[in-house]
C-alpha cells in the first residue's frame, strides 16, 4: 500500500464518494453536515474550502425536512458527494412528498430593501442554492425525490 504522507493529491483526480444517510429532523441535518465536514477533512481534499458545499447542502436538507418530510416519522434521506474535475457532484434522495408540481422552487431572493418590521425571516434557502449551485436537476420516481447539483470548488 502506498502512502502519501504530507503530499497533496491532484484535486482533479476522483476520490471515493462520501455517502451519508439520515432521518428527517433538523438535529440529523446538523449531524450529517458535521460528518460531511469531518470526512472532507480526513481526505486529500482537506485543503479545499467545503464551506459553499455545506451552505448549499444545509439548505437542501432543511428544505427536505421542513417540506417533503413535514409531519412524517418514517422520513429517510440519503446523500452522496463526489469530487471530480474541480466540482462536487451531489445527489440527495428522500422518500417524502414530491416538490409542488414536481418542479424546483424558483428561488427568488426576498426583498430586503424594506422597513424593519417587514424584513423577511425566511425564503432565503432556495435563492442561495440557485446562486451557489449549478446543473440542478430534480426528478420524482417510485415515491422518492432525487435532487442533483454541482458545486465548483
Amino acid at each position: 500500500m502506498t502512502t502519501h504522507t504530507g503530499a497533496r493529491r491532484d484535486v482533479s483526480q476522483p476520490t471515493s464518494p462520501i455517502h451519508i444517510e439520515l432521518e428527517g429532523t433538523p438535529q440529523e441535518v446538523r449531524r450529517a453536515l458535521l460528518r460531511l465536514r469531518a470526512k472532507v477533512d480526513e481526505t486529500a481534499l482537506a485543503h479545499l474550502d467545503a464551506g459553499t458545499l455545506e451552505i448549499v447542502l444545509g439548505e437542501v436538507l432543511n428544505n427536505v425536512v421542513e417540506h417533503a418530510l413535514a409531519k412524517r416519522t418514517d422520513g429517510r434521506i440519503a446523500l452522496t458527494c463526489d469530487f471530480a474535475n474541480r466540482c462536487w457532484r451531489v445527489v440527495v434522495r428522500d422518500n417524502g412528498a414530491a416538490m409542488p408540481d414536481e418542479t424546483l422552487p424558483r428561488g427568488n431572493a426576498p426583498d430586503v430593501d424594506i422597513g424593519l418590521a417587514d424584513l423577511p425571516e425566511g425564503g432565503f434557502g432556495w435563492s442561495m442554492v440557485r446562486m451557489l449551485a449549478r446543473d440542478i436537476h430534480y426528478h420524482r420516481a417510485n415515491g422518492w425525490n432525487t435532487l442533483s447539483f454541482c458545486i465548483e470548488s
Partner: peptide, 20 residues
C-alpha cells in the same frame, strides 16, 4: 463558523423583537 437560512432568519427576528 456556520449559519443557515433559519439561523439568519432568527437573527433578523431578534433585531425585529428589539424594536426600532
Amino acid at each position: 463558523d456556520f449559519i443557515d437560512s433559519s439561523g439568519l432568519g432568527a437573527i433578523v427576528a431578534a433585531m425585529k423583537q428589539l424594536g426600532a
